[in-house]
Amino acid sequence: MSIAPRPLPDLNTRRAPGLGGFNLTILGLEVRRLLRNRRTLIFSIALPVVFFLIFGLNTQYADESVGNGNVSAFIMISMALYGAILATTSGGAMVSVERAAGWSRQLRLTPLSPAAYVIIKMLTALVLGLGSVVAVYATGIITGKPSMSVQLWIVTGLCVWIGSLVFAAFGLFMGYLLPTENVMQILSFALVLFAFGGGLFVPLDQMSDLFQTIAVYTPLYGLNELVHAPLTGQSPTVTDVVNVLAWLAIFTGGAIWRFRRDTARV
């Protein structure tokens, strides 16, 4: 059997891809991977829905008025935020598994730029984060308990979703920092602590003075205040905004620092 010589590729007609290799095929495959991960789905979608069903429908307080809506709506927003930050943290922390598997190194043998890779990870995290918000809000609609205007449903939902991007940066930072395949087991625990500090599970005014003093500095405090602001009608304080921006800067700066170290050629 004779094999025809393969035509010589013309070196000059070969081009590097645009956008550093970013494309929708990869985004689709990454989302599919996330959906295959049962653990991630349970933690970021099923768990917040269950929490809402337990805490958001309690007849003792659910119908009490809060600003432009009721307590049930307030708790729904908290649970959507909790699910969304779990989702985006998981999405970002996937880099840890991929580095451990040598996939990041394999990708360096392709045209995919490190920046495009990080953007794909962020977007994948956001898709899962959207899933969490939609799941909790849909549960809210079905139960009929949360009460606020249609406009507020949309505005608070978008605030939670976009705000969860802060934790995609957190996930990336930790994913590059911690060289373990089980990084999410550590991070889920940290997120529970952050959620208490942010007042997502128990209102902060029911906690001790010391706890409240510390809570102001924790990473979910400002974000939790901001996403509830449209509902409560209280304008965000400087503390809230500074808290969010400071943690965003820390997580993004940390992710960039570790990312640079990881992709530096030795």
């Binding site: 590729p9 070969r14 891809p17 495959l29 991977r33 991960n37 598997a101 040598g102 394999q106 043998l109």
Partner: peptide, 20 residues
């Protein structure tokens, strides 16, 4: 050369995602 797909490599181990 790598960006243009002119060079590729089969490395010793790793480099694959188990869940794909």
């Amino acid at each position: 050369a790598i960006a243009r797909g002119l060079v590729s490599a089969v490395l010793q181990t790793g480099g694959l995602l188990k869940d794909l």
